[in-house]
Design a protein around this nucleic acid. Structure first.
Lengths: 120, 120
DNA sequence: CATACACATCGACGAGAGTGGATCTGGCGT
DNA sequence: ACGCCAGATCCACTCTCGTCGATGTGTATG
């Protein structure tokens, strides 16, 4: 018995709506609860060595295919897919489907915003 | 039967030996496994809303006593102590004992190094 | 010395995250 | 149409981490 299923989320790679990042530098006034939760989401995304290496791999080249990540990261395909989803959900990387492949590129503005939130 | 006990670790507040932060910007060459682990430790420390607010509270003033943190953070004394220990273990805040109190201050250089590691 | 107070440590619990095998979806080639 | 492949989703397991009550340690004060 097949359960009814949504047509497949267009989400993970979409550059459209992802978590905002409107946090004032934490060296200024104390962060509000909401600002802290928002910023913590981004920090959590970068709090994993695999995701950091994934992000640096993507950022150090123009575009990288998912299948090119499994070997250098030493992780399985589902795990790599999980990590790209997390980073893309915050807009740190953006994916574009080309045929069977997804090409990822880093968003430098997102990282810059993060640095600013850290007191830049 | 009292177990033999070390004279009490001088560690948490000590500015002496804490985790280094010698990571090149992740926008350059891909991070090595070791660099990623090292950087992830710092990100993990900032991946919690309570610790972010704690850090911003300390950074926004000259020095803050531990007992002044429980109320604004809405956390118990053991929890606050835990968080200050985590941040101090990475050198993001530095504590100084004065009588019964510990006064915390933020280390701006540490945050600057973090921003640099994020591609500054 | 006794008391009060600030902070650290211990122990236990619950929630969340990283991981990968199995499986499903969808695009491409023959 | 069939098989192949890239990637997403499901599911279960394990482990880490945030939290706080209870307790220990150390310092000041009466």
């Amino acid at each position: 018995m097949g359960t009814v299923r949504e047509p497949r989320a267009e989400v993970p790679r979409a550059p459209g709506r992802c978590a905002p990042l409107t946090v004032a530098p934490l060296t200024g006034a104390p962060l509000s609860e909401g600002e802290a939760v928002e910023l913590a989401r981004f920090m959590s995304a970068l709090a994993d060595p695999v995701r950091l290496r994934l992000l640096s791999l993507v950022a150090s080249r123009d575009a990288v295919c998912s299948c090119e990540l499994e070997v250098p990261l030493g992780r399985s395909q589902p795990t790599v897919s999980h990590h790209t989803t997390v980073l893309a959900g915050l807009g740190l990387i953006v994916g574009e489907r080309r045929g069977r492949w997804v090409w990822w590129r880093a968003d430098p503005d997102r990282l810059a915003a993060l640095r600013r939130a850290l007191g830049g």
